[in-house]
């Protein structure tokens, strides 16, 4: 006879199975809840997960902060500009993984000067390999159909031909980044993953007039690292360019003023928007590089408030002559 406090074996088995099933469901629900990202990429990350970009800057060398080379041939002028800063070996060491960040913002051909000229990408990539870089990677986040932008700008083809790898932006390569003491870059998705694995970063930008920011040069070029609905930053364009100049610490930058877009920037569209200004600038101080770039656009420093804001934030100097830029001319 069964004792009153003893369960029927079948009933007990059912309860055990039921308990196991409930535990399994609870565990699955718990794991799902833990893994779920209800707010999507770039948002809702915990404070301790917020990223910072690596510091790629090179040690400063007085007298070799800024170089300005006159000439029409980009291949020659950029090589000379880097040479005047101490040569590519000053910046690139054997085994380095180098990121090149051109302006690939538009599906626009090199003729129109809206994007970085592909000859520059090819030349700089080759120089990096000559200095025994392990890998050269070319990145940008054009938003509008990156494949078309890299193809029509000629940058994809030039990079590949020079042995560089082109990394198109993918959603999972963006990490939320917060600039310490920044007011705009807070938990904002940044094209982070390629940078996280790199050891050097070179920004390469054309000189352009810009409807919103007055000019687009090396500092504005970092805008292309931002993901998300970055157009909201157009409301405070000087603020965002300043914060980008603080956040991104490149190894050096190249400002291509071989032709400058004088009107209808940043897209241009007509060859008549361009002027031959025949100048290549390289430097470890992007505020100084852009300050010099103003002169190519017939702008005053005061026309670009972000320059003085960046200077106040310690990102560089607008008084580029105080750096005693090294000048040269190549035929």
């Amino acid at each position: 006879m069964t004792e009153p406090n003893q369960l029927n074996p079948a009933r007990r088995q059912l309860l055990i199975r039921g308990a196991k099933a409930a535990a399994s469901i609870a565990a699955a629900a718990g794991i799902a809840s833990w893994l779920s990202d209800r707010e999507g990429p770039g948002r809702g990350q915990k404070t301790e997960d917020r990223g910072q970009l690596p510091d790629f800057s090179a040690p400063r060398k007085d007298g070799q902060v800024l170089s300005i080379v006159a000439g029409q041939d980009r291949v020659k002028t950029v090589a000379k500009a880097i040479e005047l800063l101490g040569g590519i070996e000053r910046f690139i060491k054997p085994g380095d993984i180098v990121i090149l960040k051109p302006n690939v913002g538009f599906a626009s051909p090199p003729l129109l000067g809206a994007t970085t000229h592909p000859d520059l990408i090819a030349t700089v990539a080759k120089l990096c390999y000559q200095a025994k870089a392990k890998k050269v990677i070319v990145i940008d986040n054009p938003i509008n159909d990156p494949a078309s932008c890299f193809a029509i700008s000629g940058i994809g083809k030039a990079a590949t031909a020079a042995g560089a790898q082109v990394v198109m932006p993918k959603d999972n390569q963006f990490n939320p980044v917060t600039l310490k003491d920044g007011s705009l870059i807070k938990d904002w998705p940044v094209f982070y993953e390629p940078l996280a694995g790199a050891t050097k970063l070179i920004g390469i930008a054309p000189v352009k007039i810009h409807h919103r920011s007055a000019a687009s040069m090396t500092m504005k070029n970092w805008y292309g690292l931002l993901g998300g609905r970055r157009n909201i930053f157009h409301q405070d364009i000087n603020g965002i360019i300043t914060e980008l100049a603080i956040m991104v610490k490149p190894t050096f930058v190249i400002l291509d003023g071989t032709t400058s877009m004088m009107t209808n920037g940043p897209t241009g569209g007509s060859v008549s928007d361009l002027k031959k200004t025949n100048t290549m600038i390289a430097g470890t101080d992007m505020v100084a590089a852009d300050s010099f770039g103003c002169s190519l656009l017939d702008l005053k420093l005061a026309d670009l408030p972000y320059l003085s804001l960046a200077e106040k934030a310690g990102a560089g100097t607008v008084d580029y002559e105080s750096l005693k830029p090294v000048r040269a001319e190549v035929a």
Binding site: F106, I143, H211, R212, N231, H234, N264, G265, P266, T267
Partner: peptide, 10 residues
Amino acid sequence: YEKINGKAPM
């Protein structure tokens, strides 16, 4: 802005 970026506001 995806197509013309900084010129969109104009």
